[in-house]
Amino acid sequence: MKQTEFTIIGGGIAGLTTAIALQQTGIKAAVFEAAPVIRPVGAGLVLAANAMKAYQHLGIAEEIIRAGTRLKQFSIYNEHGRMISHTDSEKPSLKYGINNFTIHRAELHRVLGSRLEPGQIRLGKRAIDIVPDADGYRVLFEDNREHYTKYLIVADGIHSPIRKKLLPQSRIRYSGYTCWRGIADNRRLQVRESSETWGLKGRFGIAPLAGDIIYWYACINAPQNNPAFRNYTVEDLHHLFKDFHEPVGEIILQTRKDQLIWDDICDLEPIGQFAFGNLVLIGDAAHATTPNLGQGACQAIEDAVMLAADLKSHSMVADAFRSFEQKRMKRTRRIVELSWQMGKIAQTENPMLAGIRNTLFRLMPAAVNERQLKMLYEVEF
């Protein structure tokens, strides 16, 4: 049975960023990832200014910037193409020190993985249980192997079995809407604007990425776990969104079937504890959020930098984990709940409520939007 001082369960964005942050404080953590190969799910994501500031702090922002695309502006339209709201992403981002970026998850994983030592990430190791003892934890894996560690950082996502053991009352919430994600060819369309379209039959988001491709997502209200959606084709989705303004339909048709990903949108109902002695939950294992504010990965990245700082400033690991919990609980809870509320607003199918919503968004003073951006982006490392 092998032993390490620090172990990270989960090799996603939270786990890899944390491993890099710990490495810079002199801690080499073993990283165990369930997948046999790194195959990023979700296609694309936004790295908002707060996440990019964290990567600046770690000294890897420039490499990520080269792999991404600057998000200059973000607009919301109704299904007929009339603007509901518009945000100039550059002005507030510069105020907070750096721009927002969009990036393909595969590119972000590549950059993060390149900063770790060969063999530091161990694939095909799905953790299913832990057994605490006086000196640490035995981590039990699906392949019937086990690993001993003194300190454990759990970053294995929203469905974390370790969190479920520690907090059996923790609950994953279904948002009420399901989602398809895809990558489309942008060479002919040349879409340059990031946007969302809010219609009565669903919502469609667009984010251009580097390399002349578009990351897009399409959400509709639906019962949970509908198996028919798993086999939806590009043509099925084109039919669903046929009444939306262009280039929505064209983007769907520029997508190969093997580039479609489907899943229900869920979050983790806010929990009351991240730290458990020499064990701590981070990222989606601690505070999974719906994607409506674009903050899921961003909050995990913040976690990594702040956890490393606490470990550097505390002589006892349990004290560091408890300090991390105290710093992160209120902020992540606020973002989870605000994102949940925003999804309900965006997904309404009631024509009268949608009309009122659109009018209120058009009339909303810029100061209101600025306060929300300040809450998201203003973070110190």
Rank of each mutant, 00 (worst) to 15 (best):
Ser175Leu: 11
Gly199Asn: 05
Gly12Met: 01
Asp264Pro: 01
Met83Arg: 13
Ile261Gln: 12
Tyr217Ser: 10
Thr87Val: 13
Trp340Met: 13
Arg328Gln: 06
Leu94Ile: 07
Leu363His: 04
Ile27Arg: 06
Leu94Arg: 10
Thr359Tyr: 03
Trp340Gly: 12
Arg334Trp: 07
Tyr151Phe: 13
Ala51Leu: 04
Arg171Trp: 09
Val131Tyr: 02
Leu281Pro: 05
His104Cys: 10
Lys242Arg: 11
Asn144Gln: 15
Asp129Leu: 14
Leu363Val: 00
Glu117Tyr: 09
Ile252Asn: 10
Arg230Thr: 14
Ala366Asp: 14
Arg163Glu: 08
Met52Ala: 05
Glu146Pro: 11
Gln24Lys: 10
Leu152Asp: 14
Asn144Lys: 11
Ile172Cys: 09
Glu246Tyr: 04
Arg362Asp: 09
Ile356Leu: 14
Gly59Glu: 07
Glu107Cys: 11
Ser170Arg: 03
Ala21Ile: 03
Ala29Gly: 05
Gln326Leu: 08
Val37Cys: 14
Ile213Trp: 10
Asp129Arg: 04
Asp88Leu: 00
Gly157Met: 02
Thr290Tyr: 07
Leu253Val: 04
Asp263Arg: 00
Phe324Cys: 04
Asp258Ile: 10
Gln73Ile: 02
Gly202Ala: 12
Gly277Asn: 05
Phe101His: 09
Ala300Thr: 03
Glu246Ile: 00
Leu281Arg: 00
Met52Ile: 02
Arg66His: 14
Cys179Thr: 10
Met316Gly: 11
Ile103Phe: 01
Arg230Leu: 15
Tyr377Asn: 02
Phe6Gly: 09
Trp216Ile: 12
Val317Gln: 04
His159Lys: 14
Glu380His: 07
Cys219Thr: 12
Glu196Met: 12
Gln372Ser: 13
Ile282Tyr: 03
Ile301Glu: 04
Lys53Ile: 06
Lys242Trp: 07
Gln295Val: 06
Ser313His: 13
Pro168Trp: 06
Ala184Asn: 11
Lys374Gln: 10
Gln299Lys: 03
Leu360Gly: 06
Asn100Trp: 06
Val154Trp: 02
Tyr232Cys: 11
Ile65Gln: 13
Glu250Phe: 01
Arg188Val: 13
